[in-house]
């Protein structure tokens, strides 16, 4: 009995250690002085952060990733919210099938969807006589495939609990449909919108597989820049870049959690 308890606690500890230690390790090593990551370090330093910002590929990768994630979120979240609203509120036939279809992009493996998009973009390039692969619009188009399904997934859960009678009351009291939507429905949807935006942004920002073939010279995302760097070495500069990303994402999660309880979403 005591042994079972001990194993139970041991497994819990081990699971969290395996999950969190690598992230923690990167944050810690980003302050190490030595060029090659060694334990214990000979001293501490902040120079790798300066080094990280100086490296063109990381800075431009960060900017590209940020732009792509922001634009894809801006386009995908309203469309996804509209679809989620229709799926939870109206009586369309084949709801389940439509939901599965809209979630399709996150069910189909990123590497498969990414290659299919790459081939399609090449055909379109030939037909239209313009560049798509390796351009910002191309990347944004691809990442809409992340932001739409994540919005649908997060929002359908969030919208299910909304009380329809409040809207009906507003309508009965003489509010026009547009007023009802702007003054009642939209404010009620705010937590779902915030959560969907955060998930969409982060999923786009950190995506690797879907993006791999769609980047081009000068138009690469941060995860791909990091991966290319990692194929040669792991050093404190990379740890510094990773730490910046970790801090940005943690901040986004904490801010979002003030609006909507994250623990209720996934």
């Amino acid at each position: 009995m005591r042994l079972t308890r001990l194993t139970y606690r041991g497994v819990i500890f081990l699971a969290y250690l395996v999950m969190l230690l690598p992230v923690l390790l990167l944050v810690v090593t980003s302050f190490f002085k030595d060029t090659i990551i060694t334990f214990p370090p000979s001293g501490l330093s902040l120079e790798w952060y300066a080094n990280a910002i100086d490296r063109e590929e990381f800075l431009s990768g960060f900017i590209v990733s940020f732009k792509v994630a922001a634009l894809a979120t801006l386009i995908g979240v309203p469309l996804g919210m509209a679809a989620a609203l229709a799926l939870t509120r109206s009586a369309i036939r084949g709801k389940q099938a439509i939901t599965t279809f809209l979630l399709g992009p996150i069910i189909v493996p990123g590497i498969v969807a990414g290659t299919a998009l790459y081939l399609t973009f090449l055909v379109a390039q030939n037909q239209l006589d313009m560049d798509i692969v390796g351009t910002l619009p191309g990347l944004v188009a691809a990442h809409i495939l992340l932001t739409i399904p994540w919005t649908v997934r997060v929002a359908t859960a969030g919208l299910q609990g909304l009380d329809k009678s409040v809207e009906e009351a507003a309508a009965n009291l003489g509010a026009r449909p547009w007023t009802v939507f702007m003054r009642v429905t939209l404010p009620m949807m705010r937590p779902a919108i915030v959560a969907a935006s955060m998930f969409s942004f982060i999923q786009s920002f950190e995506n690797l597989e879907l993006t791999l073939l769609l980047v081009g010279p000068g138009m690469s995302t941060l995860p791909i820049a990091m991966l290319n760097y990692l194929e040669f070495q792991i050093d404190p500069t990379l740890a510094a870049v990773a730490t910046i990303q970790v801090v940005v994402i943690a901040a986004m999660m904490l801010i979002t959690d003030r609006y909507v309880k994250l623990s209720r979403i996934v």
């Binding site: 999950m19 969190l20 230690l21 690598p22 992230v23 923690l24 390790l25 990167l26 982060i202 920002f205 950190e206 995506n207 690797l208 995860p223 990091m226 991966l227 990692l230 792991i234 990379l238 740890a239 990773a242 990303q245 970790v246 994402i249 943690a250 999660m253 994250l262 996934v266």
Partner: peptide
């Protein structure tokens, strides 16, 4: 628990 998921695969592989 959700946090490592959102940090992304590349960063965590580096870890």
């Amino acid at each position: 628990t959700m946090f490592p998921l959102l940090v992304g695969g590349v960063v965590r592989s580096a870890g």
